[in-house]
Design a protein around this nucleic acid. Structure first.
Lengths: 152, 152
DNA sequence: CCCGTTTTCACCCTTTCGGGTGATGGACGC
DNA sequence: GCGTCCATCACCCGAAAGGGTGAAAACGGG
């Protein structure tokens, strides 16, 4: 899975666009300031140049930071399990384990082998799970569990 | 699907607002600085504190801008069917119809009644669909179809 | 009109699923 | 200790699903 680091973020189109825009705006602002200074016969003193340089630098830095912290790539979408719904339904840990395997498309026999128990056990736990979810078939169980954010 | 390019981003309301606000703030800040410098020949605040204040202000401003420009709103998640994958797999229209009903959690008998055909027909079409998807069970078919963006 | 594809349906069979009931052992709290 | 919950397993039975084969219509393009 390709993870993006800071350097990668810096080179992203959005970051480049932002940097270009910031630079353009600040250049325009500086030009406006120069124009104003010339109109009023006032010299730009070094302190102002200093302040402008600091402003530009930290504006760019802040912009990059805001982008890096906020930009969310689609593939890094994390799923947060709805433990509250699980608790209110009374779904046990073992039943949830069975649920994940059911959602994974495995048969009861496969789940039984994977968990090292009898297929009859899986059947019992699946039946109990279906009752708690109000599902008649395993596809219903998957759909309802997804609707409740029990599984991705 | 509306694709965003660089120009489109630059012309977005958020970007325009940011550009205008940045320019305005910079101009005002510069004006205030000039005014203060001219009014008091004596510096009221130490230069370092002054620079730090500017740095903080513009860092925050830049951070807000970066956030605004790149934050992904909980956007309208529209599903676009992958017709190319459907065509390459040779999935027929009828098979796709059966697929949607399978994904809807319906049994073959229910699908048959809904489509007004024999359950045997649904079985045949489902079997053909499974072959094309490389799925052994209907849950596998749903998973692979979702992976191929054939269904939401 | 002919040929290929699609759609439709039937019959066989095995596997999987789901419902129901009952039973045992362990953990936990009162 | 006792009741409760959980996990485990077994059996029976019917329904659903899936695999395989075959074949009759319908449909569309060359």
């Amino acid at each position: 899975m390709p993870r993006r680091n800071s350097l990668g973020n810096l080179l992203q189109p959005a970051a480049l666009r932002f940097a270009a825009l910031t630079g353009l705006v600040l250049a325009l602002g500086a030009a406006a300031l120069s124009w104003v200074s010339l109109q009023h016969s006032v010299r730009l003193i070094p302190t102002e140049l200093y302040a402008i340089a600091i402003a530009i630098f930290f504006a760019v830095l802040g912009g990059w930071a805001g982008h890096s912290l906020t930009a969310r790539r689609p593939e890094t979408r994390v799923f947060s399990r709805n433990d509250a719904a699980m608790a209110s339904l009374g779904v046990t840990v073992r039943e949830y384990e069975v649920l994940t395997h059911i959602a994974g498309g495995r048969t009861n026999k496969e789940i039984a082998r994977k968990l090292g128990v009898s297929p009859n056990t899986i059947k019992s736990q699946a039946a109990s799970l279906f009752g708690k979810l109000g599902a008649a078939r395993r596809i219903d169980a998957i759909r309802k569990a997804r609707a409740l954010s029990l599984i991705p």
